[in-house]
Protein backbone atom coordinates (compact mmCIF):
# COMPACT_ATOMS: atom_id res chain seq x y z
CA UNK A 1 0.00 0.00 0.00
CA UNK A 2 1.33 3.43 -0.89
CA UNK A 3 2.29 5.80 1.87
CA UNK A 4 -0.38 8.25 0.74
CA UNK A 5 -3.13 5.65 1.00
CA UNK A 6 -1.81 4.66 4.40
CA UNK A 7 -2.05 8.24 5.62
CA UNK A 8 -5.72 8.48 4.75
CA UNK A 9 -6.70 4.98 5.82
CA UNK A 10 -5.01 5.31 9.21
CA UNK A 11 -6.58 8.65 10.16
CA UNK A 12 -8.96 8.19 13.11
CA UNK A 13 -12.66 8.70 12.28
CA UNK A 14 -13.48 12.41 11.93
CA UNK A 15 -9.84 13.46 11.63
CA UNK A 16 -8.67 15.16 8.50
CA UNK A 17 -5.20 15.12 6.99
CA UNK A 18 -3.06 18.22 7.38
CA UNK A 19 -0.93 19.02 4.34
CA UNK A 20 1.46 21.94 4.76
CA UNK A 21 3.27 23.34 1.71
CA UNK A 22 6.72 24.88 1.72
CA UNK A 23 9.07 25.62 -1.16
CA UNK A 24 12.14 23.39 -1.03
CA UNK A 25 15.34 25.30 -0.52
CA UNK A 26 13.67 28.58 0.44
CA UNK A 27 16.04 29.85 3.16
CA UNK A 28 18.40 26.95 2.37
CA UNK A 29 18.06 23.19 1.90
CA UNK A 30 19.29 22.43 5.43
CA UNK A 31 16.60 24.66 6.85
CA UNK A 32 13.99 22.94 4.69
CA UNK A 33 14.95 19.60 6.22
CA UNK A 34 14.50 21.06 9.70
CA UNK A 35 11.24 22.68 8.68
CA UNK A 36 9.96 19.31 7.47
CA UNK A 37 10.71 17.79 10.85
CA UNK A 38 9.01 20.72 12.57
CA UNK A 39 5.94 20.22 10.38
CA UNK A 40 5.82 16.53 11.27
CA UNK A 41 6.20 17.29 14.98
CA UNK A 42 3.23 19.66 14.69
CA UNK A 43 0.76 17.41 12.94
CA UNK A 44 1.67 17.21 9.25
CA UNK A 45 0.41 14.01 7.65
CA UNK A 46 1.64 14.80 4.16
CA UNK A 47 4.26 17.40 3.25
CA UNK A 48 3.99 19.20 -0.04
CA UNK A 49 7.37 20.37 -1.24
CA UNK A 50 7.44 23.05 -3.90
CA UNK A 51 10.04 22.45 -6.60
CA UNK A 52 11.56 25.86 -7.37
CA UNK A 53 10.84 27.23 -10.84
CA UNK A 54 11.75 30.54 -12.44
CA UNK A 55 8.20 31.16 -13.73
CA UNK A 56 5.57 30.00 -11.21
CA UNK A 57 2.54 31.16 -13.18
CA UNK A 58 -0.22 29.80 -10.93
CA UNK A 59 1.18 31.15 -7.69
CA UNK A 60 0.41 34.40 -5.92
CA UNK A 61 3.10 36.86 -4.77
CA UNK A 62 3.99 35.05 -1.52
CA UNK A 63 4.82 31.66 -3.05
CA UNK A 64 6.20 33.21 -6.26
CA UNK A 65 8.76 35.06 -4.19
CA UNK A 66 9.71 31.88 -2.37
CA UNK A 67 10.37 30.26 -5.76
CA UNK A 68 12.46 33.26 -6.74
CA UNK A 69 14.56 33.02 -3.58
CA UNK A 70 15.19 29.30 -4.04
CA UNK A 71 15.96 29.67 -7.77
CA UNK A 72 18.39 32.49 -6.96
CA UNK A 73 20.14 30.06 -4.58
CA UNK A 74 20.40 27.56 -7.44
CA UNK A 75 18.10 24.95 -5.90
CA UNK A 76 17.31 22.34 -8.57
CA UNK A 77 14.96 19.39 -8.90
CA UNK A 78 17.93 17.14 -8.24
CA UNK A 79 18.56 18.96 -4.95
CA UNK A 80 14.92 18.51 -3.96
CA UNK A 81 15.15 14.76 -4.62
CA UNK A 82 18.30 14.53 -2.46
CA UNK A 83 16.48 16.44 0.25
CA UNK A 84 13.65 13.91 0.27
CA UNK A 85 16.20 11.11 0.40
CA UNK A 86 17.72 12.68 3.52
CA UNK A 87 14.28 13.14 5.06
CA UNK A 88 13.48 9.47 4.46
CA UNK A 89 16.48 8.47 6.57
CA UNK A 90 14.78 10.04 9.59
CA UNK A 91 11.12 9.59 8.68
CA UNK A 92 9.41 6.72 6.88
CA UNK A 93 5.75 7.46 7.64
CA UNK A 94 4.99 11.05 6.59
CA UNK A 95 4.08 11.18 2.93
CA UNK A 96 5.93 13.61 0.67
CA UNK A 97 4.43 15.12 -2.48
CA UNK A 98 6.40 17.24 -4.92
CA UNK A 99 4.44 20.16 -6.33
CA UNK A 100 5.81 22.21 -9.14
CA UNK A 101 5.86 23.09 -12.80
CA UNK A 102 6.59 20.82 -15.71
CA UNK A 103 9.77 22.27 -17.18
CA UNK A 104 12.27 21.04 -14.59
CA UNK A 105 10.79 17.52 -14.98
CA UNK A 106 10.74 17.84 -18.76
CA UNK A 107 14.44 18.68 -18.78
CA UNK A 108 15.25 15.92 -16.22
CA UNK A 109 13.48 13.35 -18.43
CA UNK A 110 10.21 11.66 -17.41
CA UNK A 111 11.64 8.21 -16.89
CA UNK A 112 14.73 9.36 -15.02
CA UNK A 113 12.57 11.62 -12.88
CA UNK A 114 10.08 8.87 -12.01
CA UNK A 115 12.89 6.49 -11.09
CA UNK A 116 14.75 9.03 -8.97
CA UNK A 117 11.58 10.22 -7.27
CA UNK A 118 10.66 6.68 -6.32
CA UNK A 119 14.17 5.88 -5.14
CA UNK A 120 14.32 9.06 -3.02
CA UNK A 121 11.07 8.24 -1.27
CA UNK A 122 8.70 10.65 -3.00
CA UNK A 123 5.10 9.44 -2.73
CA UNK A 124 3.26 11.69 -5.15
CA UNK A 125 3.79 14.30 -7.82
CA UNK A 126 1.59 17.26 -8.70
CA UNK A 127 2.50 19.17 -11.85
CA UNK A 128 0.58 22.44 -11.88
CA UNK A 129 0.81 23.13 -15.62
CA UNK A 130 0.20 19.58 -16.82
CA UNK A 131 -3.52 18.95 -17.22
CA UNK A 132 -4.71 15.34 -17.66
CA UNK A 133 -4.94 15.85 -21.43
CA UNK A 134 -1.14 16.12 -21.67
CA UNK A 135 -0.25 13.75 -18.85
CA UNK A 136 -0.21 10.37 -20.56
CA UNK A 137 3.57 9.81 -20.87
CA UNK A 138 4.47 11.04 -17.42
CA UNK A 139 1.68 8.94 -15.92
CA UNK A 140 3.03 5.77 -17.50
CA UNK A 141 6.43 6.46 -16.02
CA UNK A 142 5.07 7.26 -12.54
CA UNK A 143 2.77 4.21 -12.59
CA UNK A 144 5.72 1.99 -13.38
CA UNK A 145 7.38 2.95 -10.06
CA UNK A 146 4.20 3.33 -7.95
CA UNK A 147 4.45 7.07 -7.45
CA UNK A 148 1.01 8.69 -7.23
CA UNK A 149 -0.02 11.32 -9.75
CA UNK A 150 -2.03 14.07 -8.10
CA UNK A 151 -4.21 16.46 -10.09
CA UNK A 152 -5.82 19.79 -9.43
CA UNK A 153 -9.57 20.25 -9.70
CA UNK A 154 -10.92 23.79 -10.04
CA UNK A 155 -14.37 25.28 -9.47
CA UNK A 156 -14.43 25.69 -13.26
CA UNK A 157 -13.64 22.02 -13.97
CA UNK A 158 -16.64 20.57 -15.80
CA UNK A 159 -18.28 17.25 -14.89
CA UNK A 160 -17.08 15.82 -18.17
CA UNK A 161 -13.46 16.59 -17.32
CA UNK A 162 -13.89 15.36 -13.74
CA UNK A 163 -14.91 12.01 -15.15
CA UNK A 164 -11.79 11.92 -17.31
CA UNK A 165 -9.53 13.13 -14.52
CA UNK A 166 -10.84 10.40 -12.23
CA UNK A 167 -9.45 7.77 -14.61
CA UNK A 168 -5.84 8.91 -14.22
CA UNK A 169 -5.53 10.60 -10.81
CA UNK A 170 -4.18 8.64 -7.85
CA UNK A 171 -3.27 9.34 -4.22
CA UNK A 172 -5.72 12.19 -3.71
CA UNK A 173 -7.09 15.08 -5.72
CA UNK A 174 -6.38 18.68 -4.86
CA UNK A 175 -9.37 21.00 -5.07
CA UNK A 176 -8.38 24.59 -5.79
CA UNK A 177 -10.91 26.34 -3.59
CA UNK A 178 -11.19 29.54 -5.58
CA UNK A 179 -10.72 31.18 -8.94
CA UNK A 180 -7.32 32.68 -8.43
CA UNK A 181 -3.73 32.12 -7.46
CA UNK A 182 -2.26 30.69 -4.26
CA UNK A 183 -2.61 32.94 -1.24
CA UNK A 184 -5.66 34.80 -2.52
CA UNK A 185 -8.20 35.94 0.04
CA UNK A 186 -11.68 35.21 -1.26
CA UNK A 187 -12.46 31.73 0.09
CA UNK A 188 -16.14 30.83 -0.20
CA UNK A 189 -17.05 27.88 2.03
CA UNK A 190 -20.42 27.25 0.41
CA UNK A 191 -18.81 27.09 -2.99
CA UNK A 192 -16.21 24.67 -1.62
CA UNK A 193 -18.85 22.40 -0.15
CA UNK A 194 -21.02 22.28 -3.24
CA UNK A 195 -17.98 21.49 -5.35
CA UNK A 196 -16.82 18.74 -3.00
CA UNK A 197 -20.19 17.10 -3.39
CA UNK A 198 -19.89 17.33 -7.16
CA UNK A 199 -16.30 16.00 -7.20
CA UNK A 200 -17.24 12.98 -5.10
CA UNK A 201 -19.77 11.89 -7.71
CA UNK A 202 -16.85 11.12 -10.00
CA UNK A 203 -13.79 10.71 -7.82
CA UNK A 204 -13.39 8.04 -5.18
CA UNK A 205 -9.99 9.28 -4.01
CA UNK A 206 -9.66 11.50 -0.94
CA UNK A 207 -10.13 15.20 -1.74
CA UNK A 208 -7.81 17.83 -0.29
CA UNK A 209 -8.69 21.52 -0.39
CA UNK A 210 -6.14 24.27 -0.82
CA UNK A 211 -5.70 27.94 -1.94
CA UNK A 212 -6.97 30.61 0.42
CA UNK A 213 -6.75 28.64 3.70
CA UNK A 214 -4.83 30.84 6.10
CA UNK A 215 -5.51 29.79 9.67
CA UNK A 216 -7.26 27.42 12.07
CA UNK A 217 -10.68 29.00 11.49
CA UNK A 218 -10.69 28.65 7.71
CA UNK A 219 -9.08 25.21 8.00
CA UNK A 220 -11.78 23.99 10.35
CA UNK A 221 -14.55 25.27 8.09
CA UNK A 222 -13.08 23.57 5.05
CA UNK A 223 -12.33 20.35 6.93
CA UNK A 224 -15.98 19.79 7.64
CA UNK A 225 -16.40 18.26 4.20
CA UNK A 226 -12.85 17.79 2.88
CA UNK A 227 -10.51 14.86 3.57
CA UNK A 228 -7.44 17.05 3.81
CA UNK A 229 -6.54 20.70 4.22
CA UNK A 230 -3.60 22.23 2.37
CA UNK A 231 -1.94 25.37 3.73
CA UNK A 232 0.90 27.12 1.92
CA UNK A 233 1.17 30.90 1.74
CA UNK A 234 0.72 31.66 5.43
CA UNK A 235 3.52 29.21 6.32
CA UNK A 236 5.77 30.51 3.56
CA UNK A 237 5.17 34.02 4.94
CA UNK A 238 7.09 33.02 8.10
CA UNK A 239 9.96 31.70 6.00
CA UNK A 240 10.11 35.01 4.15
CA UNK A 241 9.88 37.02 7.36
CA UNK A 242 12.24 35.01 9.56
CA UNK A 243 14.45 33.29 6.95
CA UNK A 244 17.54 34.75 8.60
CA UNK A 245 16.43 33.83 12.13
CA UNK A 246 16.08 30.06 12.02
CA UNK A 247 14.76 29.52 15.53
CA UNK A 248 12.04 32.10 15.13
CA UNK A 249 11.13 30.66 11.74
CA UNK A 250 10.82 27.12 13.10
CA UNK A 251 8.82 28.25 16.13
CA UNK A 252 6.38 30.31 14.07
CA UNK A 253 5.86 27.61 11.42
CA UNK A 254 5.45 25.01 14.17
CA UNK A 255 2.93 27.08 16.12
CA UNK A 256 0.65 27.79 13.15
CA UNK A 257 0.87 24.15 12.03
CA UNK A 258 -0.08 22.89 15.48
CA UNK A 259 -3.04 25.26 15.60
CA UNK A 260 -4.34 24.22 12.18
CA UNK A 261 -3.74 20.55 12.80
CA UNK A 262 -5.58 20.68 16.13
CA UNK A 263 -8.54 22.40 14.46
CA UNK A 264 -9.07 19.59 11.96
CA UNK A 265 -8.43 16.60 14.17
Amino acid sequence: MSRLRNVFSQLPEGNKAFIPFITAGDSGLDNTLELMQTLVANGADIIELGVPFSDPMADGPMISKSHERAVADGVSLKDVLSLVEKFRKINTTTAVVLMGYLNPIEVFGYKEFANSASKSGVDGVLVVDMPPEEAHDLKQNLDAVDVDFIFLVAPTTTDERLEFLATIASGFVYFVSLKGVTGAGHLDIDLVNSNLERIRKYVELPVGVGFGIKDAITAKAVAEHADAVIVGSSLVAFIEKYGADKDKMLTSVGALSAEISAAIK
Partner: peptide, 18 residues
Protein backbone atom coordinates in the same frame (compact mmCIF):
# COMPACT_ATOMS: atom_id res chain seq x y z
CA UNK B 1 -5.16 19.05 -29.69
CA UNK B 2 -2.94 21.90 -30.80
CA UNK B 3 0.17 19.81 -31.40
CA UNK B 4 2.73 20.55 -34.07
CA UNK B 5 4.08 17.00 -33.66
CA UNK B 6 5.87 17.16 -30.28
CA UNK B 7 5.48 20.96 -29.96
CA UNK B 8 2.57 23.14 -28.84
CA UNK B 9 -0.21 21.60 -26.75
CA UNK B 10 -2.03 22.88 -23.68
CA UNK B 11 0.19 23.12 -20.60
CA UNK B 12 -1.74 25.25 -18.15
CA UNK B 13 -3.20 25.04 -14.66
CA UNK B 14 -6.55 23.31 -14.25
CA UNK B 15 -8.16 26.63 -13.31
CA UNK B 16 -7.64 27.85 -16.88
CA UNK B 17 -8.69 24.69 -18.69
CA UNK B 18 -12.37 25.48 -18.97
Amino acid sequence: KGHFEQYGGVFIAETLMT
